[in-house]
Nucleic acid binder design. Structure first.
Lengths: 226, 226
DNA sequence: GACATCCCAAATGTATACACTGATTGCAAA
DNA sequence: TTTGCAATCAGTGTATACATTTGGGATGTC
């Protein structure tokens, strides 16, 4: 049985993707974000181990990370459950997001820019999606994530980068939920461009302000879908 | 050998302190913060397992949490190392701290206060320490942590509470380092009182401003010890 | 003497067996 | 019929055996 598993796809992908716990983390994270597992669903270690062709140990380590990412809830002696997002938590999420990302935008505008990062940011800010085109929407989500994390990178603060990265778990999950609900992301590209411009112009107050509008706009779009 | 371990102190403390991984996490965290392990020191899973009278499994889970807390650095296939704090990281730490804690103070002043929490905050803000008295200084550190996390609680945002809690790992470590270096914490009690007053008076701009001064003051004190 | 190669040892990475706990169900007695 | 107790079971908590990787040291050759 070991031999069989080892000889599968896993071995090939392993060298590329790192340790099993990382692979499981990435796969499980994606499956939760994209809605493969429904909120409230119980995830048992053994079942997950089978599904991802590994043992409980890497699954446990991946799951405990996902608990920190707010995607899973852990109950001692009971197991892991896909988190529900309550309205209260949604409010807290966007409040926190505005704190982190507005600070990141302001700092990104303040500090000496890395030309390469700036160029990447420009490209990312121009990614659009076509309504009704699921694939282009998914590409947009990925660009959106890279854009927002890129701003934290420009702020040159690893703790902010990490906070932004952590936030994206929850945000992407909402964006994927919006996928089935209509044209969530209308107008976001234009806002991204404004944020980029403010940062390029080293205009700190405007960078903060435009980012705040962007976050609040996203929030009200999400709430309108409820 | 198992039997022996089970019959030791551990069994008694276990029910109180929760699972072994939690116990190991708390003990190891404390030992790193208080300087039992020196920066750069390599911590091997098996050795830690012996030291805390358990096996590698809970140690691994505790260590991976401590890596997220910025107390350990993990190198694949090599192990865990107690983190050095560089000057760059110290700057980033205080920059991030000011973002999180100023936002928390402002929100705490904005939102409807919980009377019980407010009373606790008042008490905590009054804790002083006597110079040269190591024990009173340690009590002050604990009160300081509870005070700052308490403000995040008043802000009624779990994500902020968590961010503040995470920050305290690194901050406490600095405070314990200051323990051997002199009267680090002079004047902090007075500043705590000002922060408390601003929050009680629901004065948002002042809460933010006083907290900013407090954080920047702490930062320059830490830097002066280098 | 220096360098390259191979092998071994030490440490983590993973799998799995065993322990413990909490919940549920079934049975018996009131 | 209802209630309480006990036994069983499902699932995590922990320990440990085994696999894999990596770095260093020893040995051999140029």
């Amino acid at each position: 049985m070991r031999k069989l598993a080892r000889s599968g796809l896993r071995t090939a992908s392993r060298a590329a993707a790192g340790s099993l716990r990382e692979q499981v983390y990435n796969l499980l994270r994606k499956d939760i974000i994209t809605g493969v597992y429904k909120p409230g669903e119980a995830l048992r270690e053994e079942v997950l181990a089978e599904r991802y062709e590994t043992s409980r140990t890497p699954v446990r380590e991946a799951a405990s990370r996902l608990e920190r990412d707010q995607l899973l809830r852990f109950v001692p002696n009971k197991g892991y459950f896909v988190r529900h997002i309550t309205v209260t938590e949604l409010n807290e999420l966007y409040e926190y997001r505005s704190i982190i990302e507005c600070a990141a935008a302001e700092l990104a505008a303040r500090k000496e820019p890395d030309p390469e990062l700036l160029a990447q940011l420009k490209e990312l800010s121009e990614v659009r999606y076509r309504p009704e085109d699921r694939r282009s929407y998914i590409r947009f989500i990925e660009a959106d994530t890279a854009f927002h994390i890129g701003i934290a990178r420009m702020a040159r603060n690893e703790l902010l980068v990490r906070a932004s990265t952590d936030l994206r778990c929850s945000i992407e999950r909402l964006l994927y939920a919006g996928l089935d609900l209509g044209n969530y992301a209308t107008g976001l590209t234009q806002e991204h461009r404004e944020i980029y411009d403010a940062i390029r112009n080293r205009d700190e107050p405007r960078a903060r302000e435009v980012m705040m509008r962007h976050v609040l706009g996203s929030k009200s779009k999400v709430f309108s879908l409820l």
